[in-house]
């Protein structure tokens, strides 16, 4: 995390002028607001933040912030973000994307980013659908959800991203609801401050392809139990929760990934001595 800035930044300082492509009423507008509020809370210099995403509706977010950004390719945001953070440990790195991007095509990177525990925050705006390609089931979609690609539903159990993150070694696991902007901002700021790989699932309804998700705002509720740093307790909790429990659900103490680029030092001519006979 970078040092505090003397100037007082406002939330608008973190927002770009670009108009989002999102549908009116999309939960991702609230996520964008929460991200800018979290950065305001932390008073990070915009140029010292890098927002890295994959492809999908939510992955459009980097260009809507006034930070450095990289809108990469489908599923690869976490890999690019890892490279940025290892090369530039001085930057605050936020990776962002959707459920299809992060859990399906990017699933392997999700496992290994959790395991590697590089110091960054990963925000998944989960709307349980592929929106940009106009309504196909994602790994978190209910098995009976009907669509043109999978008539009658996929019949597959949904992926449980929080349990998988925990099992893979993520150091901070939280769930929020996009409609709760202030609560989401608080948790994003908390995640950024926490060392290691922080994962936040933000339930962010798709008003166009999943109008049924409008009821989420009635269904979400704050976790009634206190935070834990015990993976076994967290696992029991996550396995048995209803998917609408919000809050910090696990806060681990693992050391972050250690290999970072350092300052230029040493001399190449010393290295070549190993070849001399």
């Amino acid at each position: 995390m970078n040092e505090l800035a003397p100037k007082k930044f406002k939330a608008s300082d973190y927002k770009s002028q670009l108009k989002p492509v999102w549908c009116p009423g999309c939960g991702d507008y609230h996520v964008l607001l929460a991200v800018t509020q979290a950065l305001t809370k932390l008073q990070l210099k915009p140029e010292n933040v890098a927002v890295i995403s994959g492809i999908g509706c939510s992955s459009r977010i980097p260009a809507y912030t006034n930070s450095y950004g990289f809108h990469t390719v489908h599923g690869r945001g976490l890999a690019v973000a890892t490279g940025v953070k290892v090369a530039r440990p001085d930057l605050t790195v936020i990776a962002a994307g959707g459920d299809g991007d992060g859990f399906s095509i990017g699933g392997n990177h999700f496992l290994h980013a959790s395991r590697r525990n590089t110091d960054m925050t990963y925000i998944v705006m989960d709307n349980e659908v592929y929106g940009m390609t106009k309504g196909q089931p994602s790994p978190t979609t209910d098995p009976s959800w009907d669509s043109a690609l999978s008539p009658g539903g996929t019949g597959l159990s949904p992926f449980h991203p929080l349990v998988i993150a925990l099992a893979s070694g993520a150091n901070f696991i939280a769930r929020t609801f996009s409609g709760d902007v202030r609560g989401t901002a608080t948790i994003i700021a908390d995640a950024i401050k926490h060392p290691g790989f922080s994962f936040i699932q933000i339930l962010s309804p798709c008003v166009t392809f999943r109008p049924d998700e409008k009821v989420w705002k009635e269904q979400v509720h704050k976790a009634v139990v206190s935070e834990t740093d015990d993976p076994a307790r967290a696992a029991r909790r996550l396995m048995s929760d209803d998917g609408f429990n919000t809050g910090v659900l696990y806060r681990g103490v693992r050391k972050p990934y250690r290999h970072s680029c350092g300052e230029e030092q040493g001399d190449i001519t010393e290295i070549q001595q190993q070849f001399e006979v």
Binding site: A79, V84, R88
Partner: peptide, 18 residues
């Protein structure tokens, strides 16, 4: 974790200036 990750990590690091 795989070659998809290695090329994209290299891209990220280079974006960072390395």
């Amino acid at each position: 974790e795989d070659e998809l990750a290695s090329i994209n990590m290299a891209i990220g690091a280079s974006f960072g200036g390395r």
